[in-house]
Amino acid sequence: MPKSRSRGKANSNLARDHKMFSTCHLFTWEGLLNAKDGEQYTTAQTYLRMGGWCPMGEYLADQLIKRPRNWMIGVRALCRAPDGTEWMESQMFDLPSRRIGDISDAYHELRAAVLSAQQTRQVYDLGWIAQTWAGRKPEDHNELWHYYYAPPGIIRQVCRDDAVIRRMAGPVYSESRQATWQLSNKDYLEQRARELAA
């Protein structure tokens, strides 16, 4: 009697991992603090085909950062001139097959590089964004991925699709955001100086 073939695909942790974590992003804005506790928060999201970007719970976010993955990483500064003109200055790099937590020093270097190209008084927020990819790295000539949750006017400088801009747009400029970031930056620099002196 012939052996019956097993039906369906075998369970694969790798496939499940790929499905859940192949397009995720982590991002933060230093100038947007939770009013309740005054803390900066990192937001972790995964892209679901039927639901768009959805927030990840603590367990999934932990799985996202503790395993090696392919990452695109960007540090971006939102700037505004006295005449109201806005732009984004950024630095990006690729991190293939690595744990994102292994490169915390790179953040400090990128942050300094982004700010060195700007007059600090014109910066109203700064943050990092990291996005995963699996298989072949997606083509993105304008590096649109790192404009996620930037103000719509800044995204419009590289994208003319209003639907895409609406989907990607984040919080806009405000005086309180700028004031918060300027103080946050001062704290960061003082803390960094203490760490380097130790």
């Binding site: 947007l32 309740k36 937001t43 927030p55 949750y149 747009a169 405000s174 955001r177």
Partner: peptide, 19 residues
């Protein structure tokens, strides 16, 4: 709404964090 945070907070497009 700009985006949702897994804590249940919601960030609005003017930067307000709603609890």
């Amino acid at each position: 709404v700009a985006y949702f945070h897994s804590s249940g907070c919601v960030v609005l497009k003017n930067g307000t964090w709603l609890q």
